[in-house]
């Protein structure tokens, strides 16, 4: 069973007052999230990440398509029994203490009496707020509120945890704590889905990622698959005839002249190097080296977004392909 299934999900928002026109925030989105592990929904601001999560939670209704949470339709109250959710920039009730808030929410999951208190206490201990549990939330810093948000997302011992920009606005220590928390949830066998535009966090946490752009899923896979796909191959050769360089321009992403007759060719991701090397040899060039280019998730991200900018670690320069 996939804890999250998204099938052709589409969401239009009307824009304009007199003649409202639909603005498509999510466009025919389809993906499945396997059980266990951490799935990162990545994308620039306005890509449709939060809209997608809200569609999963029935806070928004799809224009077309459907979504399933833990085998039930999105919006099914039963599915939410095993779901934890942290909204982006969470805010709660200033008049409550963290303990009261957690007990209130635990009560909505059906926990009673001592069990309810114990769950609230355990969740707060887990996020490091055990000592501050009786302080009113209005006295909490942003980082502490974020921790309360995490605590309320796990108070029901969920099978699926959805976190919307969980690192947003946190200092480095807060971000590290949230990262550790997400990894701990993964190690407990829970499925974690989180949205983020902070790629370094996603790279460290995610077993799989989906990249959204303008409401569409432009790439999906493991971090290894996406970076391999984005990385390409560097082929260096000497005694390369000028005519070959001109012919090769259409086949390679970038050509760099190192010295007379010595060139480095960047093959595009997915382009197999063997035929190119054979052609080089046929043209009388001497092969110097063939090296896969390691790519970061940022490269994969930018590649998927169609802005193919790559950082080459060996040269330390940043080059934009045409």
């Amino acid at each position: 069973m996939f804890p999250v299934r998204v099938l052709g999900l589409t969401k239009d928002f009307p824009q304009g007052f007199w003649r409202p026109r639909p603005h498509r925030a999510v466009d025919g989105l389809s993906f499945d999230i396997p059980e266990g592990g951490v799935f990162g929904l990545l994308g620039p601001n306005g890509a449709g990440k939060s809209t997608t999560l809200k569609l999963l939670l029935d806070l928004l209704r799809p224009t077309a398509g459907r979504a399933e949470i833990l085998g039930r339709p999105a919006g099914d109250v039963g599915a939410r029994q095993r779901l934890g959710f942290l909204p982006e920039n969470p805010t709660f009730y200033d008049h409550l203490t963290a303990e009261e808030l957690l007990e209130y929410f635990a009560g909505l999951f059906g926990y009673r009496g001592e069990d309810r208190r114990a769950r609230a206490g355990a969740a707060l201990d887990r996020v490091g707020l055990g000592a501050d549990r009786r302080r009113p939330l209005r006295q909490y810093s942003k980082g502490m509120v974020q921790r309360v948000g995490l605590a309320q997302a796990i108070v029901n011992d969920p099978a699926l945890v959805i976190l919307d920009e969980p690192m947003s606005g946190l200092d480095p220590i807060g971000r590290r704590d949230v990262r550790e928390m997400i990894l701990a949830l993964r190690d407990e066998g829970r499925t974690v889905l989180f949205s983020s535009h902070i790629l370094s966090d996603a790279e460290q946490l995610c077993s799989r990622v989906g990249i959204l752009a303008k409401g569409r899923l432009v790439a999906e896979g493991t971090v290894g698959e996406l970076t391999r796909h984005a990385g390409g191959t560097d082929v260096t050769a000497s005694d390369v005839p000028t005519a070959f360089v001109d012919r090769a321009a259409a086949r390679v992403r970038k050509t760099s002249r190192i010295a007379d007759g010595r060139y480095r060719f960047e093959l595009a991701p997915g382009e197999r190097p063997e035929p190119f090397i054979a052609d080089l040899a046929a043209a009388g060039a001497a092969l110097v080296s063939v090296a896969p280019v390691g790519a970061s998730l940022e490269d994969a991200f930018l590649h998927a977004l169609g802005n193919d900018v790559r950082v080459d670690d060996t040269r330390g320069d940043r080059s934009a392909a045409s």
Binding site: K54, L57, D58, L59, V77, G78, R80, Q81, L83, F85, L86, P87, N89, P90, T91, F92, Y93, F105, L108, F109, G110, G149, Q152, I162
Partner: peptide, 13 residues
């Protein structure tokens, strides 16, 4: 204050 978002994600019709 957007507290509704957290609340309606709970099993509360």
């Amino acid at each position: 204050r957007r507290s509704i978002i957290s609340l309606l994600a709970k099993p509360l019709p």
